[in-house]
Amino acid sequence: MLVHNRAGKWAVWGLFLVLFLPLFALPLLVILAASFAGHWSGALPSGFTTAHYTAATRGDSLQALTTSLVTAVTASLLALAVGTWGALGAHALPRPLRRVLDALFVLPVAVPSVVVGLAVLVAFSQPPVLLNGTRWIVILAHTVLVTAFAYQSVSAAVLRLDPAYEQAAASLGARPAYVLWRIRLPLLLPSLTAAAGLCFTLSMGELSATMMLYPPDWTPLPVQIYAATDRGRLFTGSALAVVLMTATLLVLFAVARIRTRAAYR
């Protein structure tokens, strides 16, 4: 479309590959390779083994995976509930008030996650609510961090929703609660699942706030990966990273399946 002669095209594609492969494709491949490697002291890894995976799927590591999954699922569902409620509520308000709510819900994105972690730590290590040392402080921080994304994507979807549907429903005699339950939420379902997927992904990979907060008995996978690499066990770290990526992608894939089914109805 843009470049029409053959030589020019190949030159552009060549430059693209030179930039794209080492920067984006290579890192993921390297992690995958390392997770199977016994040694890596030369140009290429050697001594292929699945021992790292055996280690990564038992004991502390398995515990870390379930911790991450439970944290991510809980935080995403909470965030989805609060974010959806917030977005629907904001939509019903006059514009200036809606702006205020928009700003409030988007603020956690602009504030560094480490600071969110610190703030939660400071606030919930003292009365009236003591959560420090429990798993709930981690889940709470994750919820705060991902609620912003849930709010934003649901809010965008609510704006896109054709008001004609709600109006048709109201003209047929449906009260607002009935319209919400039978018309608006079902029509928002594809966006809600997309938002849930996004929240889950972010929570699965969350490291910064978690590092500030995690109690010894609630170590999510990213912290476990950090602990492994920090002790120089890079191959184990890689295997754990692959487990993290795979789990994330599997859940995303399942969510996408639900989403296409919801959109197809």
Partner: peptide, 15 residues
């Protein structure tokens, strides 16, 4: 975009 950032550093350690 759906992977955490620190994986990149981990990969760069190998590279």
């Amino acid at each position: 975009l759906s992977f955490p950032s620190f994986l990149i550093t981990l990969a760069l350690l190998f590279l």
